[in-house]
Simulated scan of single mutants.
Amino acid sequence: MADLRHTHELAFAGDVVIKRYMDSKPGAAEREWRALNLLAEYAPGLAPEPIGYEDGVVTMSRIDGVPLRGLFARTVHVAPLVEALTELHTAVPPTVLRTVPQRPWQLDAIADWVRRRGAGWRPREPLADRAVKEGLRWLESWSPGEQGVTPVFGAGDGNLANFLWDGVRVRIVDYEDSGRSDLAFELAELAEHVSMWVDGEVEVAHRFELSPPEERRLRECRKVHALVWLFLLSHEHPRNPPGTFRRQVERVLATLGA
């Protein structure tokens, strides 16, 4: 789930990046360091190279590229983005992946977060109130189970700003919420992240060949993530265009009806 707090500080020294984590996010530095080492071994070139780790500070190589969010990603970027995600998800061998801790903010945790936010919702305007009401009603009737769960290594953050385009390929940064996950959940988080549609729709989830159970799980997980963003965007942020919350309300209602 998106973490809108300030969780780290970045410093640059030539071709080196120094990432200092705050105490407010326990385990983040360890997750980042683990991910960089795994990817250096199993998917070299996809992520920054690990250089050093000590006392919550991760030092890594600086990689070239422009954030896809700043590019207003379009068709030319989608295939390389899918290739990068496929490499990320499948690089870590299954025997190794089983030893990797589960990433934070898995399905049960974000569902509970949505319920708490929904319980504290104060009426504001009819369409938004309807989205909250219908979302909570659906959530209470939903039982996800284990159908369609395909283990993958997940970065844990669907923000387009974490995908860097160098003119040829896409590479991925920011692994503070990374860990063992499942494919449908990761694709749902990516597809519903505000950065994927606020500047122009970037649809990547349908570029993956999924089994029918994975497709069903993807649709259900997208509903949960859409509800997360309903609450996260309930207070307009200057980073997003005016009317973003209203658009999210409409997305939630459309997603619940899918």
Rank of each mutant, 00 (worst) to 15 (best):
R5K: 11
R130H: 12
V249I: 09
P151R: 09
M60I: 09
S143R: 15
D64R: 15
H225I: 04
A84Q: 01
L160D: 01
H225C: 05
D166S: 06
D129E: 07
E30T: 09
I172V: 12
E87M: 05
G135C: 00
T150C: 08
P213S: 07
M196T: 15
Y175M: 02
L10Y: 12
E189D: 11
L46K: 00
A91N: 08
T99Y: 02
P44L: 01
E32D: 11
L81N: 03
V202L: 14
N159R: 13
E201L: 10
E134G: 08
E215H: 14
I51E: 11
G56T: 05
S61M: 07
R74Y: 08
H225D: 08
A128M: 07
R5D: 12
P144K: 03
L256A: 04
W165S: 00
M60S: 08
L233Y: 06
R116I: 08
V194R: 10
R5L: 13
A35Y: 03
A111P: 14
A191W: 06
D174L: 12
A128P: 10
L4I: 13
T59I: 05
L190Y: 13
P26C: 04
W142I: 11
T150M: 02
R103V: 02
V17W: 00
G27P: 04
M1C: 10
W33T: 03
P48K: 02
H237D: 15
R137K: 14
A73N: 03
V16K: 09
Y53V: 05
P104R: 03
E214H: 04
E189V: 06
V100E: 10
E87A: 07
D23T: 14
E30A: 14
V202E: 01
A205S: 12
P238K: 08
S178W: 00
V78T: 08
M196E: 08
R239F: 14
G65C: 04
W138R: 03
A28S: 11
S143H: 14
L85T: 04
R98Y: 14
D174Y: 09
A119M: 10
V58F: 05
P44R: 02
H237L: 12
F12W: 12
V132Y: 00
R103C: 07
R137Y: 09
A47L: 00
G135W: 00
A13W: 07
L164C: 10
T7S: 10
V132L: 03
R116G: 14
Y53M: 05
F245L: 09
M1N: 10
R246N: 11
L136K: 06
R115A: 13
